[in-house]
């Protein structure tokens, strides 16, 4: 960690000062300011999520109360129970898992292989392909949703989870290619080369040396792909319609605005449950996530 508090630096490193008291006051004021700002920021940014969790445990009477109660006067699991017993929530959840895992697996297999080539070779067209990949990643969904919808209808794939897996790959694959390429770039070529001097073929060296080292990269790319597919809404909205094949974002979206049937309590409880898998994954790859998320912006290579 290279960051220091500037005020603290004054105390630690600056040449001795005469006026210790002034320095102390400056130091304390600066510290207090930091904590005050941090507290305010966390309160404002964190409040909606806090409110979501708290309210999902409130009984219906309290949810529709004006003025609202802050903490639940009576904690209840009723909203969660209703969600599982009265709605198709479990079906949506399962469908989302199938689509997200499907798209992730597909882009990892195809993209992992391709990214190796993008990272290691400089034959004709390869660096051009890298640029195209990044370009695909930034393509607007609304542009390709129209033709993909036509294909889906013509191939009889309308209202299937399979169509969603394939369509999601259009975005998770460029992501996998681009990120995996930078992970492979970070693994020294010399490791493979010494394996080859010891008698490995190129493919053996790749499989036995590079791939194991790239596992952390593979894990974080999986998390990104999964997250993308888990969130994806437009393709689901256009391609699927039946209750049986709805994924979570689409299922919940159709409940919004029907608060006579689906109470806010149920909606908030479902919001909490949709967030859980994302949270679990985040905790698993916390460190790498920050690196990966900024990869596009700072392009660390």
């Amino acid at each position: 960690m290279t960051s220091y508090d500037t005020a603290a630096t004054v105390i630690d490193r600056a040449p001795p000062r005469r006026n210790y008291e002034a320095a102390d006051i400056h130091f304390i004021a600066s510290r207090a300011m930091t904590y005050l700002l941090a507290l305010t920021a966390c309160t404002v940014v964190g409040f909606p999520l806090f409110w979501m969790v708290i309210c999902s445990f409130k009984p219906a009477t309290e949810l529709y109360m004006s003025p609202p109660t802050f903490l639940p006067q009576q904690w209840t699991l009723q909203n969660y129970r209703d969600l599982f017993l009265q709605t198709r929530f479990p079906t949506y959840f399962l469908n989302s898992l199938i689509v997200a895992f499907g798209a992730t697996l597909l882009s990892l297999l195809v993209g992992g292989l391709g990214a190796y080539s993008l990272s290691r070779f400089r034959f004709f067209g390869i660096s051009g392909f890298s640029t195209v990949t990044l370009f695909c990643y930034m393509l607007p969904e609304v542009l390709i949703v129209i033709p993909l919808y036509i294909y889906v209808v013509q191939f009889g794939l309308a209202d299937t989870l399979f169509s969603l897996i394939v369509a999601n790959t259009a975005f998770t694959l460029p992501l996998a290619l681009w990120f995996m390429r930078s992970y492979f770039n970070a693994i020294p070529v010399t490791l493979e080369e010494s394996a080859m001097i010891d008698g490995c073929t190129r493919l053996q060296a790749m499989w036995k040396v590079t791939v194991p080292l790239a596992v952390p990269g593979l894990v974080s790319v999986s998390v990104f792909s999964f997250n993308h597919a888990w969130n994806e809404f437009l393709f689901a909205l256009v391609f699927t319609s039946s209750e049986r094949n709805k994924v979570l974002p689409l299922g919940l979206a159709t409940w919004i605005g029907q608060d006579n049937i689906y109470s806010w309590g149920m909606l908030l409880a479902s919001a909490v449950l949709v967030t859980l898998p994302v949270l679990v994954f985040y905790l698993a790859v916390q460190k790498r996530l920050v690196v990966g998320m900024t990869e596009g912006a700072s392009k660390g290579e």
């Binding site: 909606p48 999520l49 888990w230 919004i256 908030l268």
Partner: peptide
Amino acid sequence: LIPTVVAVLVWRYM
């Protein structure tokens, strides 16, 4: 990190 649909639900309630 939270899904967009979750953000939307919470804010619509607020």
